[in-house]
């Protein structure tokens, strides 16, 4: 591993770039929701309020951190950095400035699935460690929801891998030079977006963090720096899942115009990626603003009886076409 690769991992297009994108996503999310509700949204912090998530983050880091008496101190204090690590590691496998990712191996899609599962596991551990009543209820809901959305999510992620005959994101992005996989597997894309909403705990699947029912879900007992990192992680997961959707179904950094001038090519690749990333992001913002929360058993029914068969149908069509 040389110096350039370390810089790529830590600065661009690695961690720093994606954390910046996470702040932008939070701002866009709040701004889109506000505009759809006829409000203005964040306005005062920075131009058009773009620094609002930054202000929230720094304010939380300067606040007192309360550790509840009956909490599991080890997990409560060391869990948030681990929770942050999950999507932060996952983003390294997404190609941004070229058709190849910073780190790539033939089986990194399996690692991505592990990252997605680990993220939910860490959320469950954090919730249980805080030993609050609302956290415990929320984790019960989260785990039930997880059993629902995990199967359709995995099947819809595997579909483009079968189309591209590759288990690496790099290979899947490279295979979409002619056409995007969303045109061949539209149902998979839809299922992926819905499962991503559930993974991100956004409406209509914000059941584990339902504000009007269980205070703030499994985040209820967290304050100060831990809360800052949890909020940042949730936004980073937002970016990570949108980037995954853009890479698997919309071709990621692959685009129509390719040149051989090095810098221009990098700019083109990253602009293709960003346009697709924000397109998927806006789809999620719009859905989560427009829809209301459903109950936990309705969510489970939707996932098990509608989305799982649909994703299996799409998978069998893709295998038959291959």
């Amino acid at each position: 591993m040389d110096v350039l690769q370390v810089v790529e991992i830590l600065v661009f297009p690695g961690l720093t770039f994606f954390v910046w994108l996470a702040f932008v996503f939070d701002w866009l999310d709040r701004k889109t929701a506000a505009r759809m509700q006829g409000r203005v949204g964040p306005l005062v912090a920075g131009p058009h309020g773009i620094l609002q998530p930054v202000a929230d983050f720094f304010k939380l880091t300067t606040k007192e951190e309360i550790v509840p008496e009956y909490s599991d101190k080890l997990v409560f204090e060391w869990g948030p950095p681990l929770f942050f690590a999950a999507p932060a590691v996952g983003t390294i496998f997404i190609p941004v400035i070229s058709l190849s990712a910073i780190i790539s191996n033939p089986y990194d899609l399996l690692f991505i699935l592990f990252v997605l599962a680990f993220s939910t596991l860490m959320a469950a551990m954090l919730g249980y460690a805080s030993a609050g009543r609302y956290s415990t209820i929320a984790i019960g809901r989260l785990v039930v929801q997880y059993t629902g959305f995990e199967v359709p999510l995995i099947i819809s992620i595997v579909t483009p891998a079968i189309l591209a005959k590759s288990l690496s994101i790099e290979g899947i992005v490279g295979a979409q030079s002619g056409y995007w996989f969303v045109f061949i597997a539209p149902i998979s894309f839809g299922v992926f977006i819905i499962a991503a909403l559930a993974e991100l705990e956004k409406a209509p699947f914000d059941i584990p963090s339902a504000k009007t029912e269980i205070v703030a879900g499994w985040m209820t007992e967290f304050s100060g720096e831990a809360l800052a990192y949890i909020k940042l992680t949730k936004n980073l997961s937002y970016v990570f899942l949108s980037a995954l959707g853009a890479s698997l179904f919309l071709g990621g950094s692959n685009g129509p115009i390719l040149t051989h001038i090095p810098i221009l090519q990098d700019l083109l690749f990253s602009s293709y990626f960003l346009v697709k990333l924000f397109a998927v992001g806006f789809l999620i913002f719009a859905i989560r603003t427009a829809l209301a929360r459903i109950r936990i058993e309705q969510a489970t029914r939707v996932f098990w009886t509608i989305l799982t068969p649909l994703s299996l149908l799409q998978l069998s069509i893709v295998i038959a076409l291959r």
Binding site: P42, L43, M219
Partner: peptide, 12 residues
């Protein structure tokens, strides 16, 4: 919200 005011559910 334009001033950065948000109503939160938890006193923490």
């Amino acid at each position: 919200e334009r001033l950065g005011v948000q109503l939160v559910g938890s006193p923490r």
